[in-house]
Structure formats: C-alpha cells, structure tokens
Design a protein around this nucleic acid. Structure first.
Lengths: 113, 113
DNA sequence: TAAAAATATAATAATATTTGAATGTATAGT
DNA sequence: ACTATACATTCAAATATTATTATATTTTTA
C-alpha cells in the first residue's frame, strides 16, 4: 500500500510531457535512449535526466546490450494511469443536488462548529 | 481528447499530498473549507490556495450556501486515478527477454550498472 | 450597524524542478 | 591503441511551486 506521500510522488514523477511520452512508448516495448531521441524534441542529456528520474523512482529499469541501454517498464500501475489519461470522459460528474444555481440548498450531512 | 500537455498538467495539479487528500474526500461527497481544516494539517489560506488551483483547472467547483463554500468534484477522471493509486500491485511487469534492437543481450543474467 | 465567521487574495520567502552546457565513461570497431 | 558511438553526470541558471503572513471580502448574527 502506497502512503499518501508516495502516491503524490508517483504522480509528480510522471507529470511531465517528456516523461509521459517516454512511458507511453515503453508501454509498447523496450526502447533505448537513441530511440527516444527520434521523437522527443529535447537534448540527449535531458532525456537521460528524465530516464534517471524515472529509474530512481523504480518506475523503469534497463539492461545493457553492448553500448545500448534498453529501458523497460517496471511499475505495473503506469499503463493503467496512462490509459485513464487517454480515455475520453464526455460527462462531468453529477453536481450535488443542492443547487449551485439557486444557492438555496442545505449542506449535506452534519457540520459542527 | 486531452493533449500531451493537458495530460501532464492534470497529473501535476493532482500530485500533492494535500490535494490528493482533498480529492479523496470529495469523492465521498461535498465538503467546505472548514471541513478540510479538520484533517489537513496546513493553514486555512494554504487550503484555499490548493482549492483555487484545483478549481482553476476545472477539477472541482463549489456552490455557496450562506458563508460556506461547498466544494464538489467535477472531473470524472479523478475517482479513477485515485482508485488506481490506492490499489495494490504485488507484481512488477515482466522484464523483456532480450533487447529488441539487436536481439542480443539476454535479460536476466548479464545486467550491469 | 458592528462584530464574527468563513473564506479568499496578495506579497513574499523558501524550496524544488527543469534545462543547457560542458564533461565524463564504457563499449565496439578498426 | 585509437576513435567513434551511446549514453550519463555535474553544475549552474532559469523558472516554477509551495508555504507563510498579513490583509481583504462576504455573509450572518447580535
């Protein structure tokens, strides 16, 4: 079970356009750094920095093959999160019954103080 | 369909312990600011700032009831994301057997750092 | 009408994140 | 052994986020 801090940290580490793209690609399969260079419009050192961050948080790992580092996904929650983000949600959640518009409603439940 | 930037931004806005707690509570129902004060160990202005951030991103909204602001969830993806974070994932994803680029370098066996 | 309650806003200070530039390291090929 | 390739690391500057303090706004109640 992830603590509150761990949950926040996990999201924080994913929450960057380059890292989301990296993770999306890794859900499709193993990729090495020069593969990422082909579609990420950032410098190679910057790619390495993002990969290091992800690895330091146990989200990805790599193995060496010659001079290539083959990165792959480790954390099983990642594909699920990415899938949620890509899904379309046409509806907002239902607003609570007690009327944003008429301003008349009572607060649901008991309040103290 | 959310753009890459929007996906990153959404995660970034959720990715804070206080905001995650706020959103978790809001999945259970409407809450006003003083409700949050009871379980968040941060100052009232700080709570307001977190609520404003969430609202400015269309994740929550509120209605007024007297001098209370009753906040509620709007973005339907939030409960799903929170649920994923709380779920337990006992297994790592299966590691790839070899490097898809060179077809060499067998995984487990000769990993280095 | 004045006071208080509930909450927001603004300014600032502290801290964290991100990027860029330069440099470093290991391996493969010759 | 030398060079090129593939990648990482370090440091510093720029930027963004967060928390704090003080103050303001709105509504209710006395």
């Amino acid at each position: 079970m992830r603590s509150l801090g761990q949950r926040a940290e996990l999201l924080r580490v994913i929450a960057h356009p380059a890292r989301i793209r990296i993770l999306e690609e890794l859900t499709k399969g193993v990729k090495c750094v020069s593969d990422f260079e082909e579609f990420l419009e950032i410098s190679q050192p910057n790619i390495s920095q993002h990969l290091s961050l992800l690895r330091n948080h146990g989200i990805i790992d790599y193995y060496m093959d010659g001079r290539l580092r083959c990165y792959f996904l480790v954390d099983p929650v990642i594909p699920n999160i990415l899938e949620l983000l890509e899904k379309d949600y046409p509806e907002s959640l239902p607003a609570p019954a007690c009327c944003p518009v008429t301003k008349k409603g009572k607060y649901p439940g008991d309040r103290r103080r």
